[in-house]
């Protein structure tokens, strides 16, 4: 028996929106710890890792650890039936091949029951070691999103360079080139507007903008984004989900030949 209840149902809608352009199908891992997922895009260049801890749910019951294979696109379709202020309950029984979503309006005057077929998905889990990163940039997620959108109109790749001067995002394309530098700014009264750079070593890495731009679909989940970089390692772009967990994206860098 697996059952979880999330009063802030829009959160689940936003989480699925933040995954659906990257991943087609995924196994959701259910355990007493919470509801989690690790999935790669079809070309194995990017990976998304989601964690929603059990304590963050109003009700969470998971009798045994198991995985539910779901089509993310179909899940997004089902969640379209929920209003933003609905309470969402997800239920699955042992040995069944369906999952039930229940959407309740806050005043309890409308209840939707949606059943979705589960899938068998062969997926490779990657072991991601806890690493010390050479540079960690924390900045407003909307700022990061608009930088990625702006640069992707000029070029296909973004070079992220962290130095004592700040973090520079640059691109080059047929029509020209552009670079945007953000300096450390921790003096702001609003912590969500701060840009904080922790640097052990200067780092320069280049990434495909098409993936990074997909990651910024998670912008509505968190006011701040954390970008962790080390030379010749995948970047980690993390959005914290308040009181529940996080969504982390990993992207392999471009390699100079």
């Amino acid at each position: 028996m697996f059952e979880l209840r999330l009063v802030q149902g829009s959160l689940l809608k936003r989480v699925i929106d933040a995954i659906k352009d990257l991943v087609n199908d995924a196994n959701f891992d259910c355990s007493s710890t919470g509801f989690s997922l690790q999935a790669m895009d079809s070309s194995h260049v990017a990976l998304v890792a989601l964690l929603l801890r059990s304590e963050g749910f109003e009700h969470f019951r998971c009798d045994r650890t198991f995985s539910m294979g779901m089509s993310i696109a179909n899940m997004a379709k089902m969640l379209k039936c929920a209003s933003n202020d609905d309470i969402i309950t997800i239920k699955a029984d042992d040995g069944t091949d369906t999952v039930t979503f229940m959407f309740e309006s806050p005043s309890q005057d409308k209840i939707s029951d949606i059943e979705m077929k589960l899938m068998d998905i062969d997926s490779d889990h990657l072991g991601i070691p806890d690493a010390e990163y050479e540079a960690i940039v924390r900045m407003p997620s909307t700022e990061f999103g608009s930088i990625c959108t702006s640069l992707s109109t000029i070029g296909d790749t973004v070079t992220i360079a962290v130095s004592k001067q700040g973090v520079t995002f640059s691109t080059k394309g047929d029509i020209g080139s552009g670079n945007i530098t953000c300096r450390q700014n921790s003096s702001t009264e609003k912590p969500e507007e701060a840009t904080i750079i922790e640097m052990k070593e200067p780092v320069v890495l280049t990434f495909a903008l098409k993936y990074i731009t997909t990651f910024t679909k998670a912008t509505s989940l968190s006011s701040q984004v954390t970008i962790s970089l080390s030379s010749d390692m995948p970047v980690v772009v993390e959005y914290k989900i308040a009181e529940m967990g996080h969504i982390r994206y990993y992207l392999a860098p471009k390699i100079e030949e």
Partner: peptide, 14 residues
Amino acid sequence: KSSQGRLEAFFKPT
């Protein structure tokens, strides 16, 4: 010139 790396080059399957 640059090529796109794959994640398996960095993280091992479990």
